[in-house]
């Protein structure tokens, strides 16, 4: 038996090299795996908060309604009642946070209206749509229609 051990000494040395390698791996792993990994699942728990803490670019309708009562009232009476302010006026979270910092620019009425109301066979049949060229001959939409309260 002792003889066997002596004859296999090189194999024991090899096994020790492997054990040392394995132990080093486990130690390094222990030290390097990010804290919080695996708390909720197989991922860094902090990634949830990091995804959450980005600032919003669109303020959301509630923020607009807080100040712009007049326009909100107008809008509620017309067929644009379901359209959020920022759908036409663009993202305004910076304006909502500090009204003086970023003033909204008035949208280009022709391009804006056509974006939704230019006729297209793929649009739902009951959605109001026109071939703008035939309908107005290039005149601005808001010379007849009030965008906050368009007549149906």
């Amino acid at each position: 038996m002792r003889n066997h051990v002596r004859e296999a000494e090189h194999l024991i040395r090899l096994a020790l090299v492997f054990l040392a390698g394995g132990a080093a791996f486990l130690l390094i792993r222990q030290a390097v795996v990010p804290p919080g990994f695996g708390v909720h699942g197989h991922y860094r728990a902090a990634a949830l908060e990091e995804n959450r803490l980005r600032p919003a670019v669109y303020a959301g309708q509630a923020a607009c309604s807080d100040c712009h009562e007049e326009q909100v009232k107008q809008r509620a009476a017309g067929s644009h009642r379901g359209v959020a302010c920022e759908a036409c006026h663009g993202p305004l979270a910076r304006h909502a946070a500090d009204p003086s910092a970023a003033a909204p620019r008035p949208p280009d009425p022709v391009a804006l209206c056509r974006r939704c109301h230019e006729a297209d066979a793929a649009k739902p049949k009951n959605f109001p749509q026109v071939v703008a060229q035939d309908h107005s001959g290039g005149e601005a939409c808001n010379s007849c229609h009030q965008p906050h309260r368009p007549k149906v």
């Binding site: 003889n3 066997h4 002596r6 004859e7 296999a8 000494e9 090189h10 194999l11 040395r13 090899l14 090299v17």
Partner: peptide
């Protein structure tokens, strides 16, 4: 590469062969 072992006796080689 020898890992410090110079044992190449027939018996050790027989073990090597089996492993």
């Amino acid at each position: 590469l020898t890992l410090g072992s110079r044992n190449v006796s027939p018996e050790s080689r027989r073990i090597d062969d089996r492993v």
